[in-house]
Amino acid sequence: MNIQVKFFAQLKEKLGCGELTLSFPSESVTVSEVKSALSSKGSVWQKSLADGHVLMAVNHDLVVESFSVEDGDEVAFFPPVTGG
């Protein structure tokens, strides 16, 4: 299965990446597994995503790490929000 992954704000700057596609052999993975796959891309990725403050969303809803991701889903990682 393939998923789209997006990054925003300081996380996007640190990673030098706003968006990428990830492929997994299984039909479903958890957000935590998505994080692990991204972390294997290098130490900056590992360190940036290990930050406990990083928020996660699937298909535009905030989720926790155990949330299940399926083919075609859009996953996003971003720092705590500062609007308003």
Binding site: F8, A9, Q10, A57, L62, A76, F78, P79, V81, T82, G83, G84
Partner: peptide, 10 residues
């Protein structure tokens, strides 16, 4: 809005 809406200020 301050906690859940994905806006970021630089």
């Amino acid at each position: 809005l301050k906690n859940d809406a994905p806006f970021w200020k630089k």
